[in-house]
């Protein structure tokens, strides 16, 4: 009997360690690729420039706010005709997560954030109160304000709970509101907005808020009707086909500006600058405008 117990525990332990082992392997692969990246950095600058001036294949790693997924994927197709030698690789996530990944040394050429805060945290020329750690990751002079977005209140198709405005969030119509986390730009805008409406504390004490880790998660929770309503960007509501019942005014929350910048460590400065330039052309702005973005003023 004792043996059987030991055997069974052993089987399970082996099974678990196998699973964990696979995970660990993946990690180690990642570290090697990071090491490779570091090794690449040692390449003399002339060589690096040589790589970009020729029509040789270039891969650009672009870290962009999750809310830009659909538009950038469309632009990726357009850019294949403009500059076929450039391969665009995207990493879409919340700007907070992306900022952390860049800080931890991820390979990235261009960063597009959904709020100034995350960009400022990487910008040495920004207010030291925001860039607390004195991080210097951005290529000087490359930072631009790319786009503007709107913060909206979205409800599931058919609006079963009958929520019509931000003020309705204080009523009994609402059972569950989906918001982004505090570290996600959309969460910060939502917190500001609800604080201005004096609703945040009440909703929190009533346990009516569920926090998602990026804007796409919040959007999905509304689309699946897991939550009655969610505060997201106009663009995400559009892409997901959600009904928008209210739009934040400038008195309720500050303007949503998407800054973009080239990273200091880029190996492909020229290609990155060219793409960032391309993003600001009328062709791209048209794509952005289609889902609800506008050009930043």
């Amino acid at each position: 009997m004792r043996k059987k117990f030991a055997e069974m525990m052993l089987t399970v332990a082996v099974a678990i360690s196998l699973l964990v082992g696979c995970g660990a392997k993946e990690d180690s692969v990642q570290t090697t690729s990071e090491e490779d990246a570091k090794a690449n950095e040692v390449v003399p600058e002339e060589d690096a420039e040589h790589l970009t001036t020729d029509n040789e294949a270039v891969t650009l790693h672009i870290f962009a706010a999750a809310s830009m997924t659909e538009t950038l994927e469309e632009i990726q197709k357009m850019y294949a005709d403009v500059a076929p030698e450039v391969t665009l690789v995207f990493n879409f996530d919340s700007s907070g997560t992306l900022k952390t990944q860049i800080q931890e040394g991820a390979d990235c050429d261009i960063f597009i954030s959904a709020a100034q805060k995350q960009m400022n945290q990487l910008d040495i020329s920004a207010d030291p109160e925001i860039n607390e750690e004195g991080l210097d990751f951005l290529l000087e002079g490359s930072r631009v304000n790319l786009l503007e977005n709107k913060v909206v209140l979205a409800v599931a198709e058919g609006n079963p709970s009958g929520i019509m405005s931000f003020e309705d969030l204080g009523s009994d119509k609402l059972q569950l509101l989906a918001l982004g986390n505090e570290d996600v730009p959309v969460g910060q805008y939502s917190t500001e907005l609800l604080t201005n409406l004096e609703l945040l504390d009440k909703l929190e004490t009533d346990g009516k808020i569920t926090y998602g880790s990026n804007v796409k998660e919040v959007t999905t929770q509304v689309a699946e009707a897991s939550a009655d309503a969610g505060i997201i960007y106009a663009t995400d509501a559009f892409s997901a086909g959600l009904m928008v019942v209210d739009e934040a005014t400038e008195e309720l929350c500050k303007k949503v500006v998407y800054p973009a910048a080239i990273l200091k460590n880029t190996q492909n400065q020229e290609a990155a600058a060219a793409f960032l330039e391309y993003l600001q052309t009328p062709e791209c702005m048209e794509v952005f405008a289609r889902v609800g973005f506008s050009k930043a003023k």
Binding site: L176, E204, G207, K208, I209, T210, Y211, G212, S226, A227
Partner: peptide, 10 residues
Amino acid sequence: MIAGYTPGRT
């Protein structure tokens, strides 16, 4: 994914 994160609820 299915319970979300609602302080004091889920």
